[in-house]
Computed example of a mutant assay.
Amino acid sequence: MSRQMTTSAFHKSKTLDNKYMLGDEIGKGAYGRVYKGLDLENGDFVAIKQVSLENIAQEDLNIIMV
């Protein structure tokens, strides 16, 4: 599969710190959502987890971060 075909699912306007391009949502759970990402430096695919900090106790946040 060519790089051009694989990057078409990504939102070119949605980049994180000019390092990752954000793609489609691939999952969700109790604490947040997971998106497909593309590392703009080396072209590797990554998973990007967006965690909602709303109503999360500090102890739980520490566990999630690990």
Score class of each variant (00 low, 15 high):
residue 1 M to E: 12
residue 2 S to H: 10
residue 2 S to K: 10
residue 3 R to I: 12
residue 3 R to S: 14
residue 4 Q to D: 15
residue 4 Q to W: 11
residue 5 M to C: 11
residue 5 M to A: 14
residue 5 M to W: 12
residue 6 T to W: 13
residue 6 T to Q: 15
residue 7 T to E: 15
residue 8 S to I: 12
residue 8 S to P: 00
residue 8 S to K: 11
residue 8 S to G: 06
residue 8 S to R: 11
residue 9 A to W: 10
residue 10 F to K: 01
residue 10 F to N: 04
residue 10 F to P: 07
residue 10 F to C: 03
residue 11 H to W: 09
residue 12 K to G: 13
residue 12 K to N: 14
residue 12 K to V: 12
residue 13 S to F: 11
residue 15 T to A: 04
residue 16 L to H: 04
residue 17 D to Q: 12
residue 17 D to L: 14
residue 17 D to N: 15
residue 18 N to Q: 14
residue 19 K to I: 12
residue 19 K to T: 10
residue 20 Y to N: 02
residue 21 M to P: 05
residue 22 L to E: 04
residue 22 L to N: 01
residue 22 L to V: 12
residue 22 L to G: 00
residue 22 L to P: 04
residue 23 G to S: 02
residue 23 G to L: 02
residue 24 D to M: 14
residue 26 I to Q: 06
residue 27 G to L: 04
residue 27 G to S: 06
residue 27 G to V: 03
residue 27 G to M: 03
residue 29 G to T: 02
residue 30 A to K: 15
residue 31 Y to N: 08
residue 33 R to W: 07
residue 33 R to Y: 09
residue 33 R to F: 07
residue 33 R to A: 11
residue 34 V to K: 07
residue 39 D to S: 04
residue 40 L to N: 02
residue 41 E to C: 06
residue 41 E to Q: 12
residue 42 N to H: 05
residue 42 N to R: 03
residue 43 G to D: 07
residue 43 G to E: 01
residue 43 G to H: 01
residue 44 D to Q: 14
residue 44 D to E: 15
residue 46 V to I: 08
residue 46 V to A: 02
residue 46 V to C: 06
residue 46 V to L: 03
residue 47 A to M: 03
residue 48 I to M: 07
residue 48 I to E: 01
residue 49 K to C: 00
residue 49 K to M: 02
residue 50 Q to D: 10
residue 50 Q to W: 07
residue 50 Q to A: 11
residue 50 Q to N: 07
residue 51 V to A: 02
residue 51 V to L: 05
residue 51 V to T: 07
residue 52 S to T: 08
residue 52 S to K: 05
residue 53 L to N: 09
residue 53 L to F: 04
residue 54 E to S: 12
residue 56 I to T: 03
residue 56 I to G: 05
residue 56 I to Q: 01
residue 57 A to P: 13
residue 58 Q to T: 10
residue 59 E to V: 06
residue 59 E to W: 06
residue 60 D to I: 09
residue 60 D to P: 09
residue 61 L to P: 05
residue 61 L to G: 03
residue 61 L to Y: 09
residue 62 N to Y: 14
residue 64 I to D: 00
residue 64 I to F: 02
residue 64 I to W: 00
residue 65 M to Y: 13
residue 65 M to D: 06
residue 66 V to P: 00
